[in-house]
């Protein structure tokens, strides 16, 4: 079973089974991969875990 790295409007990342349609409001990032590989990729990509709407203005 492979997964997609997906991201939403708040730049929050998650994973989603690649065999299922990606839910609305989420965009795939990259190609399907094993779960572990997806999670490793997320560790690289998701460096600011604050929701997008909180970044910048808050401090």
């Amino acid at each position: 079973m492979t997964y997609l790295v997906v991201v939403n409007h708040e730049e929050q990342y998650s994973i989603w089974p690649s065999a299922r349609p990606v839910p609305p409001g989420w965009a795939p990032v990259g190609d399907p991969a094993e779960e572990e590989a997806c999670l490793r990729r997320i560790d690289e990509l998701w460096t600011d875990m604050r929701p997008l709407s909180l970044r910048g203005g808050a401090r």
């Binding site: 990342y13 994973i15 490793r40 560790d43 990509l45 998701w46 460096t47 875990m49």
Partner: peptide, 8 residues
């Protein structure tokens, strides 16, 4: 991040 992504 990855733990959050896998549970949320």
């Amino acid at each position: 991040p990855s733990l959050t992504a896998s549970r949320f």
